[in-house]
């Protein structure tokens, strides 16, 4: 009977039914945009203008995907997206670990002050520093180069770095100090202790940091759109400029009706943009969902 008193109310069939209906209803509302996007993206022009067709296309077509693929320049922008999310995510995984290690393990003076300052940086909306970041990077001649994204990540100022520093900080706090003290007696230096003891024990925190950095870097368009945007197009940035790019490639005067921009083509492009993320999520679902509990970001 342990721990099930509270759930007794739920055990009556009526409340249980209400619970499932609620959960399924909410789930439907979550999935609706995705389902709508997928079915619409296969619709031909006839299906799109036919008001009786809502879900299942009668004349399914792959033409939308062909056009969207071309306009997004997927072969190029996909590589850019992968490069500009995997590399900074890796950098961020190691740099925030190192920073949190210094902050948590060494009783440095002003420790509380630094911790508060790290968290305070999280509150600054990206827009506030957008203009001056552009000025800074153009002074450093880094506008349009991947370094403009990698350097902040290296110095603990990447996307939501503060959260990851806090995550490692809490995680290191749970690791007993006896490990590093024993290694220290054996003559290991602090960097070696970090590399051979702390990191291997922190794999859950590292996995969490990496996968969340990965999707947040992939989806970021505000800062990177301005600082990298014109020379390195990622998939989401190509999607942002989709209407404009489509008009460039298919001027409406020459296009046949099936080549005119419609919601089928636009939603096909949207689906192409999120497909790599969906696949990643399917493979790493447990790491995503359970990570927040396992790493103790919520604090003890």
């Amino acid at each position: 009977m342990r721990g099930s008193f509270y759930y007794k109310y739920i055990k009556t069939p009526g409340t249980k039914l209400v619970l499932y209906v609620l959960l399924i209803g909410i789930g439907y509302a979550y999935l609706y945009p995705l389902l709508y996007m997928i079915t619409t993206s296969f619709m031909s022009v006839e299906d799109l203008v036919n008001p009786t067709i809502r879900w299942i296309p009668v004349h399914p077509t792959l033409n939308n995907y062909k056009l969207a693929w071309e306009v997004l320049e997927v072969s190029k922008s996909l590589v850019n997206s992968i490069y500009l999310s995997v590399v900074p995510a890796l950098i961020q995984t190691f740099s925030t670990a190192l920073i949190a290690y210094g902050l948590q393990r060494f009783d440095i003076p002003l420790k509380r002050f630094w911790l508060v300052l790290v968290l305070a940086t999280f509150l600054i909306p990206a827009q506030t520093t957008l203009v001056t970041k552009y000025i800074l990077f153009s002074k450093l001649k880094l506008v349009g180069t991947p370094l403009a994204s990698f350097l902040p990540a290296l110095f603990g100022q990447g996307i939501k770095s503060a959260i990851f520093i806090l995550l490692y900080y809490n995680f290191f706090q749970m690791l007993p100090k006896t490990f590093d003290e024993a290694a220290e007696l054996d003559g290991a230096g602090p960097f070696r202790i970090f590399w051979t003891i702390m990191l291997p024990l922190s794999i859950p925190a590292m996995v969490t940091t990496f996968i969340f950095s990965l999707v947040w870097y992939w989806n970021e368009t505000l800062v990177s759109g301005l600082i990298l945007g014109n020379s390195i197009k990622t998939l989401p940035i190509a999607l942002r400029d989709f209407i404009w790019r489509f008009a460039q490639m298919f001027p409406s005067s020459t296009g046949s009706p099936s080549n005119r921009l419609n919601e089928g083509i636009r939603l096909a492009a949207t689906f192409i943009t999120i497909l790599p993320l969906l696949i990643t999520y399917l493979f790493l679902q447990r790491q995503f969902v359970e990570s927040l509990e396992r790493t103790g970001i919520t604090g003890e």
Partner: peptide
């Protein structure tokens, strides 16, 4: 996992 500015804009616009 999938939310980003352009994706949300496209979903709303369509």
């Amino acid at each position: 996992v999938i939310i980003s500015g352009p994706v949300v804009s496209e979903l709303i616009a369509n």
